[in-house]
């Protein structure tokens, strides 16, 4: 709850910057197989996305500025956050990440597309 209150006081731009920074940290943690750290970061990134979602008009589209970012995890997290906002654009970005064959993000992207296609994943 304390983190949620802190996020409420941040502007959209500040949230996007923090999102980018945490995704870069997540990338680094994944490279070192630091699973506990990865999972903590995933949850913090999820909180940022939920904060944007809760704002009037659903402000997650702000994360689309991160499409094409040089860090593959930033791109992937931003794209997955926007599947419910702009499915076609988000899906194109995820497909591009899969096609890059830059792992492990290409693998995560491929599995996301698989579960979207089976209907097991329904973006909200």
């Amino acid at each position: 709850m304390r983190q949620r209150k802190n996020l409420e006081s941040l502007s959209n731009a500040e949230i996007v910057n923090l999102f980018e920074q945490l995704c870069i940290e997540q990338y680094d943690a994944m490279e070192g197989d630091e699973q506990a750290r990865v999972n903590r970061l995933v949850w913090r990134i999820h909180d940022l996305e939920m904060e944007l979602k809760s704002r009037p008009g659903d402000q997650r589209y702000e994360l689309m500025k991160l499409f094409g970012h040089p860090n593959m995890q930033v791109r992937l997290s931003a794209a997955e956050a926007n599947l419910a906002v702009d499915y076609a654009s988000a899906r194109r970005e995820i497909q591009a990440i899969k096609d890059s064959q830059w792992f492990p993000q290409a693998g995560h992207a491929g599995m996301t597309l698989y579960f979207l296609d089976t209907g097991e994943s329904k973006p909200t």
């Binding site: 699973q35 990865v38 999972n39 579960f115």
Partner: peptide
């Protein structure tokens, strides 16, 4: 390293499955 990547996917909270 592929084993690490696959196991990492299994262990990570995933938006596709409600985290």
């Amino acid at each position: 390293y592929k084993h690490h990547e696959i196991t990492g996917w299994y262990n990570k909270p995933n938006k596709n499955f409600g985290m």
